[in-house]
């Protein structure tokens, strides 16, 4: 039972991060039907930039928490600019091209960003500067750290903020309208290019925060961290129904929980033939099972329902 609660807590925390990253995939897909394979790299760049800055700031004598906040804000800015630049240079010129072209372009951007990070930060992992002391609290036989609580709180705050933006503001209504019927939105005066650019910027800023969170959770950041995380977040988006915002949130949490529970019990279940390093198998297994029964994801619309 203790293991169960512990893994549940771990899973929800990690799942919340997946959800935040998945939102970036799903928002972009919802609006231009592009799977932005470079999105995971934004998470990585966000973590690297923030880690570097935290180190720099604390060495200048800035106290821990303000340094983290300041560094995260800078990372969001850097990623937002990168997100805007990739849309402008790699995807906008391919609007209207066959769907495969921007997809290849996205993979290209992903490789470029990864190698750029390799040049800047080398292949050695950066350690998360120990500026915030980890404290542990007991919760029904399980341990919850202040880092986990922070990650969860920030994730919930960002998901809530995004939901408010998308469902309650003029800009969000225009985003949804453009995603449903871009021509009609244009006829009402919506500049699709601007809406698409804003979508990329928001997704990229979220990715930066996710990068800081996942980096501080594992304690390290490395130029390769984006691809595996990006792939899982992409799975989370597909699991929830790609293009669907509540779906990405649900898919992310679900994936995190399944993965953590799988890692916690796989040893017992298989008589220690498989260890917790097989945890990724669970995430993809769930994805396959869900897609077999609901090809459009948990909350996705059936194909053809698009207006």
């Amino acid at each position: 039972m203790d293991i169960f609660i512990q893994q549940l807590v771990n899973g929800i925390t990690l799942g919340a991060v997946y959800a935040v990253v998945a939102l970036g995939y799903t928002m972009v897909y919802g609006i231009i039907q592009l799977i932005n394979f470079a999105h995971g790299e934004l998470v990585m760049i966000g973590a690297m930039v923030a880690f570097t800055l935290i180190g720099l700031l604390t060495s200048l004598g800035v106290p821990g928490l303000p340094a983290v906040v300041l560094a995260t804000l800078c990372a969001m800015l850097v990623c937002a600019l990168l997100g805007y630049a990739m849309e402008r240079m790699a995807y906008r010129p391919l609007r209207g091209a066959p769907r495969l072209a921007p997809l290849i372009s996205a993979i290209g951007v992903s490789i470029i960003l990864q190698h750029l990070a390799l040049l800047v930060w080398s292949r050695n992992p950066l350690a998360f500067p120990q500026v915030v002391k980890t404290e542990s609290y007991a919760l029904g036989g399980a341990a919850v750290t202040n880092i986990q609580i922070g990650i969860l709180a920030i994730s919930i705050f960002m998901m809530g903020g995004l939901a408010w933006l998308v469902y309650r503001t003029r800009l969000g209504t225009a985003m949804r309208a453009t995603s449903q019927n871009p021509q009609m939105a244009a006829l009402l005066g919506v500049d699709a290019n601007r809406v698409i650019a804003v979508t990329f910027i928001i997704g990229a800023a979220l990715a930066a925060v996710a990068g800081v969170m996942v980096g501080s959770y594992y304690g390290i950041a490395q130029y390769t961290m984006g691809s595996a995380l990006g792939l899982k977040a992409f799975c989370a988006a597909v699991l929830g129904g790609i293009g669907n915002i509540p779906g990405a949130m649900l898919g992310g949490i679900l994936l995190g929980v399944v993965e953590a529970l799988g890692a916690g019990y796989i040893g017992d279940l298989t008589d220690n033939v498989f260890g917790s390093n097989y945890q990724d198998v669970f995430a993809f297994l769930v994805l396959i099972v869900v897609l077999v029964f609901r090809p459009s994801g948990l909350l996705g619309e059936r194909i053809g329902d698009r207006a």
Binding site: T173, A174, A177, Q180, N181, L188, A307
Partner: peptide, 26 residues
């Protein structure tokens, strides 16, 4: 210059209210 296109172009997943507000988007 406004066009109500053939097939009406209603945003199917937006509420009636939101559809009207989109009319006033600019």
């Amino acid at each position: 210059l406004a066009l109500v296109p053939e097939g009406r172009g209603i945003f199917a997943q937006l509420s009636v209210d939101e559809n009207l507000l989109m009319g006033a988007y600019m």
